[in-house]
Design a protein around this nucleic acid. Structure first.
Length: 411
RNA sequence: GUGGGCAUAGCUCAGCUGGUUAGAGCAUCAGAUUGUGGUUCUGAGGGUCGUGGGUUCAAGUCCCAUUGUCCACCCCA
């Protein structure tokens, strides 16, 4: 939970609407005048002053500012926690979901960007998910707006460009014109609309367009460096220099990232970027940070759809002791201790249920061994062991059975 | 925030232009098999048809409202 003052104004207009607000306690309506009660807009600030965290980055920036005396910069941290969006839920979109954040704050170096991209690549490689890592730079976008003198229309432009691969150049141009972008400006943007351009081609065409914008060219330089570093480290196949990538969050100022699964349509599964002024808002200026956030729930959805989860071992117990009740039950309880002391995850069926039911339970939970210690076994100090995978069953002395199970499980 | 769909057994769903006692599969339980699972067979339990109102001789079915849920747009993880 955060104060609304920390949350609002950082995520853009759209973002502010999606912040969950918490009603004040007490008789809050008492404070409001009749006039203020007339509209939601005027009443809202009076009755809510706290909200649920919308992401992990902004609260992190607040934390860094508050604890600046105790932190060593550059400061790195990861954080896995739920966040909330007051959105209409639908496929791949949740009101509450877990983000896994990685941030480095207090360093301007583009090496941090490179490291984060390496992390992204490795994470998804290990999870067996094919992804495209889209990169862009806010300074380039600022440069475009600069050059075209259309700062306020930047969103329309990027949204339109983003549809390039879906709709084709003609439709994109049409949309730009409908949105009121001057024909002359649209004309100047044409070099960007080359499908499947290489990184170098993209750099060349964007450089041509925004050569006169100082900030724009700075962005291009940054992108060049990042791409160069990356080419030293890894194949750049999954890296997309995507000029249409904009990201709605207001606080990004440099590199921006967005990761999409290649084979599943679910929106982005990881995103992030560089923020130069976020701590400044909370009173610590000139500290730049960069971070990314994995969307755990969406990644789970993707893995489910791709069916790349490891074979479910349902790794609960390895051994089930059948419960016969009475003194056999107490004998089994002691056996349970013995098994557990041998570090074999074991359980005793809690009720004296029918044997068939207890076997079915073991079968269902994929417990590999079922141990029968009934009156016969107790009498000769033996156990009957059934391997549920192979179906074979043997009766032997207690210690021998334990040894056999231990070695069977060790394989 | 805008637009649309759906709501029937524990789960997934069928139920025709309104018409008698609302069905199936899976799951559960019992039996075939009283110390042995996965397969099979037999049987049983389980529903205020989301909620409230309306139309009608008659509503799971039509109308209105409401709640929940899902989907698309927007935006994003």
């Amino acid at each position: 939970m955060e104060n609304l003052s920390t949350l609002l104004g950082k995520y853009g207009d759209e973002g502010d609407k999606l912040v969950f607000r918490i009603l004040n306690s007490g008789d809050f309506l008492n404070q409001a005048s009749d006039e203020q009660k007339q509209t939601t807009h005027s009443l809202l600030p009076l009755i809510t002053e706290k909200g649920l965290r919308y992401d992990l980055t902004v609260p992190f920036a607040r934390f860094v500012v508050q604890h600046r005396d105790k932190l060593m910069f550059p400061f790195k941290r990861y954080q896995i926690q739920p966040v909330w969006r007051a959105d209409r839920p639908q496929k791949g979109r949740y009101r509450e979901f877990f983000q896994c954040d990685v941030d480095v704050i207090g360093s301007n170096s583009l090496l941090n960007e490179v490291e984060l991209i390496r992390i992204i690549a490795e994470v998804f490689q290990r999870l067996n998910i094919q992804v495209k890592i889209h990169l862009n730079n806010r300074k380039i976008l600022a440069g475009i707006a600069d050059v075209l003198d259309l700062s306020d229309r930047l969103t329309d432009i990027t949204v339109a460009i983003d549809k390039l691969d879906k709709m084709g150049i003609a439709k994109v141009n049409e949309e730009l014109l409908t949105k009121g972008i001057p024909a002359e400006a649209v004309e100047r943007l044409q070099p960007l609309f080359v499908v499947n351009a290489s990184h170098q081609e993209t750099i060349n065409s964007i450089s041509g367009i925004i050569a006169s914008s100082e900030i724009g060219m700075k962005g291009v330089e940054e992108m060049k460096s990042v791409l160069e570093y990356l080419s030293e480290l890894t194949s750049t196949e999954q890296i997309v220099f995507d000029l249409s990538l904009a990201r709605g969050l207001n606080y990004y100022t440099g590199t921006i990232f967005e990761v999409r699964a290649a084979d599943v349509q679910i929106g982005s599964i990881c995103g992030g970027g560089r923020y130069d002024n976020l701590t400044g808002i909370f009173g610590l200026p000139d500290v730049s940070g960069v971070g990314i956030s994995f969307g755990a729930d969406r990644i789970y959805d993707v893995m489910n759809e791709l069916d790349v989860f490891p074979e479910q071992q349902d790794a609960s117990s390895k051994v089930l002791l059948v419960n016969f009740g009475g003194k056999e039950e107490r004998y089994a309880l002691k056996l349970l201790e013995t098994f557990r002391n041998k570090a074999i995850a074991s359980e005793l069926y809690p009720d004296n249920a029918k044997i068939g039911k207890q076997f079915a339970y073991a079968d269902n939970k994929q417990i590999q061994f079922v141990i029968i210690a009934g009156s016969n076994e107790i009498e000769n100090g033996s156990l009957s062991v059934k391997n549920m995978k192979t179906g074979e069953q043997y009766t032997a002395a207690v210690d021998e059975c334990i040894d056999k199970i231990v070695s069977a499980l060790a394989v």
